[in-house]
């Protein structure tokens, strides 16, 4: 029993138990459990890539990537360009991805260069670099030369809207791709497959020569150097890959949500992703694809189901508060662990 607890880990056990209770309550309250599962599946796929973006950063020894907004902003600009060109459907989505990735490559590279100069403070620098970028981009959104009326304020016509609806462009293109229903549970096959595809890519990458070098550089820079690994380069690569995944992640997120959210929306984007990967069993220095998948599944299922259950049981929405406590508590726990 104790070995089981050790293997699964206390946080996962607690959250798992909590989930079971919530599901039981949902059943008792005669809530539409199947629908809840469907929407949990969507939220897992929707957030999964952003969580996956933590892996290269942790692996390369940069810690949790609180600088995720960098990738998110790149992805958003990618989507805006796609919208400005009035592209729709899969073409629109992949064009947005393409632009986002192209932008995130140099952004991530520069971010990596910066992180190489602030060793030991990567997480703090990442957080505030992300915050200031988001705030700085707010000015850009106001002044950016986009013309498509779908995106700019109807009245006044100056600056981009806070939320831009994209459902008629490429909203839901992945969700609805090959969507099927099993026993009343809707499965967003395209979305989950896309997430799975990226998981496999990241997984395979970890076994390549570069992937192994990156892991060594992250776990023990001195060892890696003595084994002929260019540690600085690996760290830059880690930052870049993480930023690229962030850009892809926000596009996936937005197409599920049906909106592109601008201004201060990306500000806290990193925290749920960080919390999810930690909840999945990662630490600030070790993370696997399994951690990411398990984490996002637990975390998003919890958030999906806690809202209606608490609403029906106690009459208030406790899910936002639960999200705050669990996600930030998880990060705090990881930061104060000795091993980390």
């Amino acid at each position: 029993m104790r070995r089981l607890v050790e293997r699964v880990g206390v946080p996962r056990l607690l959250v798992g138990l909590f989930l079971l209770i919530l599901f039981a309550l949902a059943g008792l309250q005669r809530l539409p459990v199947k629908m809840l599962i469907s929407s949990a599946l969507v939220r897992i796929g929707m957030n999964g890539v952003l969580v996956l973006a933590m892996l290269p950063s942790i692996r390369a020894g940069l810690g949790l990537n609180f600088g995720l907004p960098l990738g998110v902003i790149s992805g958003i600009v990618g989507m805006l360009v796609s919208l400005e060109l009035r592209l729709s459907g899969l073409a629109g989505f992949f064009f947005a991805l393409l632009v986002g990735v192209l932008l995130s490559l140099p952004a991530g590279y520069v971010y990596g260069l910066l992180l190489n100069r602030v060793k030991g403070e990567e997480m703090m620098v990442g957080t505030y670099m992300g915050f200031s970028l988001v705030a700085g981009m707010c000015m850009f959104w106001l002044l950016a030369p986009f013309k498509n009326p779908e995106m700019i304020w109807v009245v006044g016509g100056k600056g981009l809207r806070v939320t831009i609806p994209i459902s008629h462009r490429f909203g839901g293109v992945l969700d609805n791709l090959g969507k099927f229903s099993i026993g009343g549970v809707e499965v967003p096959a395209g979305l989950l497959l896309f997430f799975a595809f990226l998981c496999v890519l990241v997984y395979l990458f970890s076994f390549t020569r570069t992937g192994m070098a990156m892991k060594a550089a992250g776990m023990n820079p001195a060892f890696a150097r003595a084994s002929g690994v260019n540690v600085e380069k690996m760290r830059i690569l880690g930052a870049t890959l993480s930023t690229v995944l962030g850009a892809v992640g926000i596009a996936v997120y937005a197409q599920s949500l049906g909106f592109v959210q601008l201004y201060l929306a990306p500000l806290m984007m990193a925290f749920p992703a960080v919390a999810a990967v930690l909840l999945g069993g990662a630490s600030t220095s070790r993370a696997t694809v399994f951690n990411a998948v398990a984490g996002v599944t637990l975390f998003q299922t919890l958030l999906t189901i806690s809202l209606p259950v608490t609403q029906s049981v106690i009459g208030g929405d406790i899910s936002e508060v639960a999200k705050l406590i669990i996600s930030n508590g998880m990060i705090l726990y990881a930061l104060t662990r000795k091993e980390a």
Binding site: L114, V118, M124, M129, F131, S132, G136, M139
Partner: peptide, 21 residues
């Protein structure tokens, strides 16, 4: 308004970078 928020975050980021650097 966004500029002042940017300054607040930016100055903290800059101070942290200088410190770590």
């Amino acid at each position: 308004e966004y500029f002042r928020v940017f300054v607040a975050y930016g100055i903290i980021a800059a101070a942290l970078v200088v410190h770590a650097w």
